[in-house]
């Protein structure tokens, strides 16, 4: 399997001594480019901690992470391989949040174009990339709109476009369908599948949403900080 993202023996411990909590225990995952997997589990099982470790916003206690074939973290070899985690997040990891969290003072195009601009691309090239993604996600007609003028579904599509803006090898989606009804939730999953396939991006979808769980071909169940992989139904929603 080509490597989108691979996690080996990832652990995270909060605190120390008697009060220490092991949020993640020897987690192993592997997602190929173009693949969308579900990460499901009850509250407090470690989903968010795992997402934060994968998103390079907190440092794991132990383990190894590889992104696009390149080791980005190895606890046995000094931890993070780059000091600039901000650039790592910007260039190599896409984020989709439970609420779209679009920047309210930027229009739709600039919300998407901001990432390439932060990466040093010109305004023109960044906006061209943004329009290309907005077109792919069928929201190009709202390119000049303010986020507050969009429907919930449109906002989520714009946030997907933003996550794809720098063509990251992996996208972390944190409950992306939580605020949406069934039709819109399935539409978002359909879009994620299309985008993963089109841009060869590995997508991890953290979810509780029973409506979308059957759509995943592979699911990681997480409980008490440990993951168990199982095959999903892979229900066709095209």
């Amino acid at each position: 399997m080509d490597e989108g993202i691979r996690i080996e023996g990832l652990s995270k411990r909060y605190g120390a001594g008697d009060t220490a909590v092991d949020a993640l225990k020897e987690v192993n995952m592997s997602i190929a480019p173009g693949e969308v997997v579900g990460l499901v589990g009850p509250s407090g099982s470690g989903k968010t901690t795992l997402l934060k470790c994968l998103g390079a916003v907190i440092e794991p206690t132990r383990g190894r992470m590889t992104l696009g074939g390149e080791v980005i973290y190895d606890s046995d070899d000094g931890g993070w391989k780059t000091k600039d985690l901000r650039a790592l997040r910007r260039d190599r990891i896409g984020f989709i949040f439970q609420a779209p969290y679009l920047i309210p003072f930027l229009d739709v195009t600039d919300n998407v174009a901001l990432l390439p601009m932060l990466a040093g691309r010109t305004n023109g090239a960044s906006r061209a990339r943004a329009l290309e993604l907005l077109q792919a996600l069928d929201v190009a007609h709202r390119a000049k709109a303010q986020p507050s003028e969009l429907s919930g579904g449109e906002q989520q599509r714009v946030s997907i476009a933003r996550a794809l803006a720098n063509q990251p090898p992996v996208i972390l989606a944190d409950e992306p369908t939580a605020p949406l009804d069934s039709d819109r939730a399935l539409a978002v999953v359909r879009i994620l599948n299309q985008m993963a396939s089109q841009y060869q991006t590995a997508i991890i979808v953290v979810t509780h949403d029973e409506k979308i769980i059957p759509t995943f071909k592979r699911i990681y169940h997480i409980r008490d900080g440990r993951t168990v992989e199982e095959a999903g139904e892979g229900r066709d929603i095209s």
Partner: peptide, 16 residues
């Protein structure tokens, strides 16, 4: 605060 957290998460520099 939430927007600033998002900006920082997606790679905006502190100085920006």
């Amino acid at each position: 605060i939430r927007e600033i957290a998002v900006l920082k998460l997606i790679g905006t520099r502190n100085r920006s």
